[in-house]
């Protein structure tokens, strides 16, 4: 499994970020109404951001695979899909923990929550179909990723009329420096971590493609049957 040369640098950056983030987050001023629970926000939002980013990365990779029959696109897509589920689960676990304190319940059928859950389910379906679909499933999954990615903004923007109790994204700009800097830092750290993990997963996919080639070569050489 060959990793790109820049990979270790990214890992080191991510590790540094992960080490520094908790200190920064803890030293940030306490939010007056929510208290300590508000600190979930510092990793809930980055998880959500990465989850959605990753979904669109997956869709981009799928489009490359479908229209340009690029194998690299497919590798990118499957790696990003797995990470969408990973960060999506982080988002869906941390969110309700915050909601328990803020709303008194773990879950409400709010627009944003519904959208996030939907995205998560679509990408779980993606992984399932990939795993058990057999031949041809790669294309189907690429289609699924494209439709899934189209689904999300559609609901997200069109339901602004639907009342939402989830904090709006404008909260971010109202943070002020005290909370803004740790928040930005944790967004950055998560993004770097995402790049590192994505590259790691893609290296595995590249290695797998190489091994498959070797199998075929071995077969041609009469070593396998």
């Amino acid at each position: 499994m060959k990793l790109r040369p820049w990979f270790l640098v990214v890992v080191a950056l991510a590790a540094l970020g992960l080490l520094a983030a908790p200190q920064l987050i803890l030293s940030a001023p306490r939010e007056t109404t929510m208290g300590l629970v508000q600190k979930i926000f510092y990793y809930h939002v980055p998880s959500a951001w990465i989850c959605f980013l990753s979904a669109f990365v997956c869709a981009a990779g799928s489009a490359m695979y479908l229209f340009k029959s690029s194998e690299a696109g497919d590798r990118l897509a499957v790696s990003a899909a797995e990470l969408t589920v990973l960060f999506g689960s982080c988002m869906l676990v941390t969110g309700p923990l915050w909601g328990r304190k803020a709303w008194g319940v773990y879950w409400v059928w709010d627009v944003r929550l519904t959208t996030a859950l939907l995205l998560f389910i679509i990408f779980i379906a993606y992984l399932f179909a990939r795993r058990y679909g057999g031949p041809g499933s790669r294309k189907l999954c690429a289609g699924l990723a494209l439709f899934g990615a189209a689904d999300v903004p559609l609901i997200y923007f069109s339901v602004s009329i639907w009342r939402t109790i989830h904090p709006k994204t404008t909260v971010v700009s109202s943070l002020g420096r005290g909370m803004g800097i740790p928040f930005a830092f944790s967004m950055l750290t998560f993004t770097i971590l995402y790049i590192a993990l994505l590259e790691m997963r893609m290296a595995l996919e590249r290695a797998r493609a190489r091994v498959d080639e070797l199998h075929i070569e071995a077969e041609d050489a009469g070593l396998e049957n």
């Binding site: 208290g35 300590l36 990793y43 941390t94 304190k101």
Partner: peptide, 14 residues
């Protein structure tokens, strides 16, 4: 709203 569960536990769990 948050009755009994202390915030630190929620943050820790997350």
């Amino acid at each position: 709203s948050g009755e009994s569960i202390p915030g630190s536990r929620l943050v820790g769990a997350a």
